[in-house]
Structure formats: C-alpha cells, structure tokens
Simulated scan of single mutants.
Amino acid sequence: MRIKLLALALGASMALSSCATHTSPTGRGQMLLFSEAQMNQMGEQSFEQIKKQEKVSTDPKATAYVNCIANAIIKELPTQQQWETVTFDSEQLNAFALPGGHIGVYTGLMKAATNQHQLAAVIGHEIGHVLARHGNEQVSRGQLSSAGLQIANIALQGQTPVEREMAMTALGAGLQLGLMLPFSRAQETESDEIGAELMARAGFNPAEAITLWENMGKLSGGAPPELLSTHPSSSTRIQDLRNLQAKVQPIYESARAAGKRPNCKI
C-alpha cells in the first residue's frame, strides 16, 4: 500500500507538471503558474539583493564594454522594455538575466569570452531565459514538486521515522532526477537557440558561440556527468550550436548587410 501511495504521489506531481498551458518561443509546451507581474516583482527583488551582496564594478571601460554589447542585443528584442545592465567585479565565470529587465555580468567571464561576439553569446543566452519564461517554469515546477512531497508525507503517516525519512529522501531524489534536471537542460538548449538568433540579429557572429563554449570547457575542468547536471555537457552544447549555424548565419549576414556592425571594445 505504501509503495502504491508513493507512486501515486510521484505520478500526480509528474502529471501536473506536464500540463502545458503556454508555448515557449521554440514551440515547447510550458506549465506556468505565475503572472508576468509576479515574475517581474521577483526579478526586481532578486536583482536588488544581488547588487547588495556583490561588488559592482567601478571600471568605466569594463562597464561601457558590457553595456555596449547588451544594448545592441536589447534593440533586437520584441518589446521595448527598459533593461538595467550591471557589471560585477568578480572572478566568477558567470552572467544572468532576470524577469523585469535585469542583466548581470561578472568580469571573470571575460576570461572565457575573449571578444564582443563571445560575450554577446552569453548575454543573448541569458536574455533568452527571460524571453522563454524559464524562471516562471522553474518556480512553477518547484511548487509542483513540493505538492507531490506533501502528498507523499501524508501517505507515509503511521510508518516509523526512519522509514519515512528514507522514503521521502528517495522520492525527493526521484523528483529531482526525473523532473527538474532534464527540464533545466531543455531550458539551456532552448536559450542557446534564442540567444544565437538574438546575437545574429544584432550583428554579432553566432559562430563565436562555439568558440566561447570551447573556452568554457577548458576553464571549467572536471564538470559533473551530463545526466546529473543542469546544463548540457560542453561537447553536446557545441554540437548543437554547430547544427544551429545553418539557421543563424544568414540572419547574421543580413544584419551586417543592413549596417549592424557593433564595435564594442574594452
């Protein structure tokens, strides 16, 4: 009986998460539980907190360089929302974008992104997460996972504390591996596609995204196996980007012919 109840709890959570109520820019079904206004508020609060925790760069050249690239991409977005871009003085190989129009770039990223095109690939990718409402998906799936665990906890009433702890731990791992991680890899792949098209429309060479991830692979060292990672492996990502070039290179060439030739230098 206990096993059946656990299976039911896990199955219910999975079924709820598969109910697609929206469609992403690439046509993938999405389950979104929060409004745009709610996500924008979350993004604003998170960004303000990050700015308090991290050191904002005081290097005007680095800031101007990042803004130059970000602004060129922002001009290509479907809506003319106001975006705030902040450069953080940190050795992290990282960048992010949040709902509500917020972009953060860490100076350490320039170890891997060695020119404007490569940094544009990262910024375009991060903006892609926002355009595809991936933050909403992640928060929504977290809510659904919590609901499944609560159902399981009720189903395990009457068992010994040790049995309950073991079962809940196993169920939590099942939700993580079967629900959250594969979905996150799908988000990363989708954002790579959106980002490559955005950078190409802005006049940045999308082929440089391949070089970027080759650089990232060299700098990241011993990454976890793809099955247990929220990101595709470097080799998988690079191959996907190579496959994407036939689609985005003509966009890039058209942008260049139209006079879109960013000249962002640090």
Rank of each mutant, 00 (worst) to 15 (best):
Thr23Val: 12
Gly203Tyr: 06
Ile123Cys: 10
Asp89Lys: 03
Gly203Gln: 12
Val122Ile: 09
Thr85Leu: 08
Pro78Thr: 12
His231Asp: 12
Ala97Glu: 07
Phe34Pro: 15
Pro78Asn: 15
Asn40Lys: 09
Ala70His: 02
Phe34Ile: 10
Ser57Gly: 15
Leu177Ile: 15
Gln245Ile: 05
Asn94Thr: 14
Gly27Thr: 08
Gln116Gly: 07
Ser234Ile: 10
Cys19Pro: 00
Gly108Ser: 10
Ala258Val: 08
Arg164Ala: 06
Arg242Tyr: 04
Gly128Tyr: 00
Ser184Thr: 11
Gly221Asn: 04
Gln187Phe: 01
Ile238Tyr: 00
Ser90Tyr: 09
Gly124Arg: 02
Gly222Leu: 06
Arg261Asp: 14
Ala9Cys: 04
Arg201Asp: 07
Leu109Arg: 07
Asn243Trp: 00
Thr58Ser: 02
Lys265Ala: 05
Gly203Asn: 06
Gly178Glu: 06
Gln30Phe: 00
Gln245His: 08
Gln118Ile: 05
Asn263Val: 10
His22Tyr: 14
Leu33Gly: 13
Leu8Trp: 07
Gln150Leu: 11
Ala167Ser: 12
Ala258Asp: 14
Leu33Asn: 10
Gln150Arg: 07
Ile74Leu: 04
Gly104Tyr: 01
Gly135Cys: 03
Glu126Cys: 04
Pro161Gly: 12
Gln245Glu: 06
Ile50Lys: 10
Glu163Met: 09
Glu214Ile: 13
Met31Thr: 15
Ser235Tyr: 02
Ser17Met: 04
Val139Arg: 03
Thr26Cys: 08
Ala207Thr: 13
Ser191Asp: 03
Pro262Glu: 07
Ile103Leu: 06
Ala223Arg: 10
Gly43Asp: 04
Lys260Val: 06
Ala64Gln: 04
Leu109Asp: 09
Asn243Thr: 11
Gln138Arg: 15
Pro60Lys: 00
Ile210Glu: 15
Gln138Trp: 05
Tyr65Val: 12
Pro224His: 13
Gly172Ile: 02
Arg28Ile: 13
Gln45Ala: 12
Val56Lys: 15
Ser17Gly: 13
Leu109Lys: 00
Gly142Tyr: 04
Met216Thr: 12
Leu16Ser: 08
Ala170Arg: 07
Gly101Lys: 02
Arg237Cys: 00
Leu149Tyr: 08
Lys247Gly: 14
Ala70Lys: 02
Leu119Met: 12
Val139Pro: 01
Leu93Pro: 02
Gly221Trp: 00
Leu6Arg: 09
Gly217Glu: 09
Ala64Asp: 10
Lys51Glu: 11
Pro25Thr: 08
Val66Gln: 11
Leu177Asp: 13
Gly101His: 08
Arg237Ser: 01
Met199Arg: 03
Val130Pro: 04
Val56Gln: 11
Leu10Ile: 08
Asn115Met: 08
Leu93Ile: 08
Ser140Trp: 07
Leu181Met: 11
Ala196Gln: 07
Tyr106Gln: 14
Arg2Lys: 12
Phe47Arg: 03
His134Met: 09
Gly104Glu: 15
Ala15Asp: 04
Gly101Cys: 09
Leu227Gln: 07
Gly172Leu: 04
Gln143His: 05
Met39Arg: 11
Pro250Phe: 03
Ala70Trp: 01
Ala70Phe: 01
Ala202Thr: 06
Met42Pro: 00
Asn263His: 13
